[in-house]
């Protein structure tokens, strides 16, 4: 595969025949996708293509009408403690960071390990400080989210996910709400995570990043997966007309801006 990385054949996330409607709108059409351990899958596509919805169905923030989601061998339950437990194994990073506004940066990272995994305060805090250091915001540990820049907040959000030792992390347009000068710092952290072997599903508009980091690129439009290929293959020679149109429109926009 692309980065010369050897990816195991052990599936972490399996989506089987996923269908979903928003009212009369068919937003996900028979989606089948398997993400293997250590793999970085980047989902791209025009807005309204269903890529964010797909990302959010993986930990059932969005319900599905039919189909099956399997996380590391267990079928995603529809409700209850089991669902919460499985969710705790899948990290999620949102477009708008969604840090807990009333808690310090440190508490944002420790709250779930303490309350969900029942770790001791000391253990949770020690690990949290290491994680904050890893994403480069350890000096801000005592502040509250509103005192941090968007890029810093998003890095804290990544640390918060990592603190749960997830089997995979979902990124739902993690840089779309950031000022241009902060996008790099977040992408750098993500690149490093990928290099360390984290399993990642990333919805993004950052094509250069996708090219560099993805093991596999998924192109979605109109609620369907239209293409699935290694990045160099996809970006060099997209097979479908719609993917070509999409890439061209991006090219236009980039050259215009």
């Amino acid at each position: 595969m692309s980065n010369g990385k050897i990816i195991s054949q052990e599936p972490i996330i399996e989506l089987k025949h996923i269908d979903k409607h928003f009212g009369s709108l068919h937003v996900l059409k028979d989606i089948n996708l398997t993400v293997h351990k250590g793999e970085v899958v980047v989902i791209i596509g025009p807005s309204g293509s269903g890529k964010s919805t797909l990302c959010r169905t993986i930990n059932r923030l969005e319900t599905i009408d039919s189909g099956e989601i399997v996380i590391d061998g267990s079928v995603m339950p529809k409700e209850g403690k089991k669902l919460a437990e499985l969710r705790s194994q899948i990290g999620m990073v949102f477009q708008s960071f969604n840090l807990f506004a009333h808690k310090t940066i440190l508490d944002n990272v420790t709250i779930a390990p303490r309350d969900v995994l029942k770790k001791s305060k000391r253990e949770a805090e020690e690990e949290a400080m290491q994680l904050l250091k890893r994403v480069g915001v350890d000096s801000q540990a005592g502040k509250v989210p509103a005192q941090l820049s968007g890029g810093q907040q998003q890095r804290v959000a990544i640390a918060r996910s990592l603190a749960m030792h997830p089997k995979a992390i979902l990124f739902d347009e993690p840089t779309s709400a950031l000022d241009p000068e902060m996008i790099g710092e977040v992408l750098d952290v993500m690149t490093e995570l990928a290099r360390d072997g984290m399993t990642m599903v990333i919805v993004t508009h950052e094509m250069n990043f996708a090219r560099r980091v993805a093991d596999r690129v998924i192109f979605m439009d109109g609620g369907s997966i239209l293409e699935e290929a290694a990045p160099e293959e996809f970006f060099a020679a997209p097979k479908t007309q719609r993917a070509r149109d999409f890439l061209n429109s991006l090219g236009d926009r980039e050259s215009r801006s």
């Binding site: 059932r60 529809k78 669902l83």
Partner: peptide
């Protein structure tokens, strides 16, 4: 509330 499952 989470979207209810069949039991909920």
């Amino acid at each position: 509330y989470d979207a209810p499952g069949p039991k909920a």
